[in-house]
Write a protein that binds this DNA or RNA. Structure first.
Lengths: 113, 113
DNA sequence: CAATTTCATATCCATATCGATATATGATTG
DNA sequence: CAATCATATATCGATATGGATATGAAATTG
């Protein structure tokens, strides 16, 4: 069996840096395809394909506007990623707190010792 | 050009569900390979390969313990993912707040109208 | 040291890209 | 309706899988 499709879920869709760039661009404003093409410096077919992947996982939605197709971010689609990775947050923060404690102790010793 | 390697970064490494399962298992305790094999129900070579990918992006670290190799989570490696996706959090929360406002208004009308 | 346990690596196969290029579709304009 | 603009889709080539199986390698045991 090969790797899972990029359209399998948001995790796979977002593994591609270009698609993260697209989402970043759309987080500021909705944009037609040609604007994304210019922003990313990619060929138009590539951008369209990336947009298709993002559409299939629900990360973006399209709207027709004359002959343009305007893409808008659907941030909810990223929530599963946030939920998953957030469950690890306390683990790295714990370690940072430990480090801070050690540093505080060292400073304390320096002052009083 | 083909797809980026799974060892390219944490985003790619974590796109695979099995590897997220491994990280989830290691978030509770460090474990030797055979324990992960049993937990995941995968063949041992597959688990070893997934562990290698996770090692290459720094998501896990290994320690020798007799003939076992004990794997431990390195949660810091997931921080870039958290940082990226967190920048979108306010966007979906805004929309939820909007929805809540609308619902509150409807309820208000129902009560006083 | 031979046997066993535990794990890593090497191959093979089928598949899903990602980028490039060519082409088709759809809307707008003259 | 023909020409043009804005996108989407089709195809090709190179590559990176992920699972299956076979084999290596290292540590422990008897």
């Amino acid at each position: 069996m090969a790797r899972a499709a990029t359209t399998a879920d948001a995790f796979n869709a977002v593994a591609e840096p270009r698609r993260r760039e697209i989402l970043d661009a759309l987080s500021q404003a909705e944009r037609p395809v040609n604007e994304l093409v210019e922003l990313l410096g990619l060929a138009q077919p590539h951008v369209s394909r990336h947009l298709r992947v993002l559409r299939e996982v629900g990360a973006v939605v399209v709207r027709d506007k004359g002959r343009q197709r305007v893409y808008r971010l659907n941030p909810q689609a990223l929530k599963p990623i946030h939920d998953w990775v957030s469950s690890y947050q306390h683990l790295w923060e714990e370690r940072l707190e430990l480090l801070e404690d050690v540093l505080a102790d060292l400073k304390d010793e320096e002052t009083h010792g």
